[in-house]
């Protein structure tokens, strides 16, 4: 890696020497390019987010659009309801709770299953790795709508798994052994057959599937830089595979592991299609609510903006928490 670092440092020296040789015109046009770049990035990357923040303090006019204002009524509505203190509702807080719950469970599930997979993948030849990467990148880039469509076919009641369960007699077997009642308690069965839609299990599985390739791609650099001689040394000294994994591999990828989980979490906070298709309406998330308020039936842009801000704050809070956690703990080798 030192070679790369040297190359990166090289042009800096010349850059420091160069200005004296440049004419004033070149300097001026370079400056112009800089101004244009900064203006473009600021206008297109930051202004939209800034607008969300400003509009979240706006006021909704009944039966019409909204107007600029500086009111906290949207935030009040989110936390305690519009008619507070007369009455209070935790509907929107509940939605945020579901957002976080889905995101946490799905992110953890993805990371826990992706870790051994990625480790095994990095032990393969470079060519095999490239093939895996092509496969993973292709599934990763596939639109959420297609993935939800696929899982919907697999899990929906008239086709896919429930039909397969009934046809193969698995349903009857479950009924005989008493597992069927357990499944009903979990909301995974109706009186006649198993059902996966709507259910929390289906939602979490689909979300987890959605981010699984991301988990592999994000863990890949750390695991591929892992020195194999460490694990080999531990093996020679008689450590069992599980001990090697626990004492050598896991500690050295702890930071990327935390980082990956957090990134997946943030990504999943904004998931939309999977939730609307697989989750029960009583368990819908803030992202769904944002959508309904900005573009859906209720049309209350300021409230939608306020919810977006809260979503963004939640995401940032978790990222900062992760930073703090990793910095506080002793540095991994």
């Amino acid at each position: 890696m030192t070679a790369t670092d040297d190359t990166a440092a090289w042009p800096r020296e010349t850059a420091a020497a160069a200005p004296g040789t440049k004419g004033p015109r070149a300097g001026r046009s370079a400056l112009a390019v800089q101004v244009v770049l900064w203006a473009t990035v600021l206008v297109f990357c930051l202004v939209p987010l800034f607008l969300v923040l400003v509009i979240s303090f706006g006021h909704k006019i009944e039966g019409a659009g909204w107007e600029w204002a500086l009111t906290l009524e949207n935030y009040q509505r989110f936390f305690v309801g519009a008619n507070w203190p007369a009455e209070s509702t935790s509907l929107y807080l509940g939605q945020l709770y579901w957002s976080m719950r889905y995101a946490v469970v799905a992110a953890l599930l993805a990371v826990v299953t992706a870790l051994p997979f990625t480790y095994l993948m990095t032990r393969q030849s470079r060519r095999a790795q490239a093939v895996w990467l092509v496969f993973l990148l292709a599934t990763l880039s596939l639109s959420e709508v297609f993935i939800v469509m696929g899982w919907d076919i697999i899990l929906s009641n008239n086709s896919g798994l429930p039909m397969l369960f009934a046809a193969t007699g698995l349903t009857d077997w479950l009924k005989d052994t008493g597992w069927f009642d357990v499944l009903r308690d979990w909301g995974l069965a109706n009186p006649r057959n198993v059902k996966f839609k709507p259910s929390e299990v289906a939602t979490v599985l689909t979300l987890s599937y959605l981010v699984w390739p991301y988990a592999v791609i994000l863990l890949y650099p750390a695991l591929s830089r892992l020195d194999p001689s460490l694990a080999e040394a531990a093996r020679t000294m008689g450590a069992r595979p599980w001990t090697v994994a626990r004492t050598v591999i896991l500690p050295s990828v702890r930071l990327p592991l935390i980082g990956t989980t957090l990134l997946l979490f943030v990504f999943l906070l904004g998931a939309y299609v999977a939730i609307t298709v697989f989750a029960d309406p009583s368990q819908h998330t803030t992202a769904v609510s944002v959508y309904e308020h900005v573009r859906g039936s209720t049309l209350n842009a300021p409230f939608g903006a306020a919810q977006s801000v809260i979503l963004l704050v939640t995401a940032t809070a978790f990222l900062v928490l992760g930073q703090w956690l990793t910095r506080k703990s002793p540095r991994a080798a």
């Binding site: 202004v47 939209p48 987010l49 800034f50 607008l51 969300v52 509009i55 904004g270 939309y272 992202a287 944002v290 959508y291 900005v294 573009r295 842009a301 939608g304 903006a305 977006s308 979503l311 963004l312």
Partner: peptide, 10 residues
């Protein structure tokens, strides 16, 4: 979804 909402306003 947050950036989308922002771009919608923008």
């Amino acid at each position: 979804i947050v950036f989308g909402v922002g771009l919608g306003f923008f």
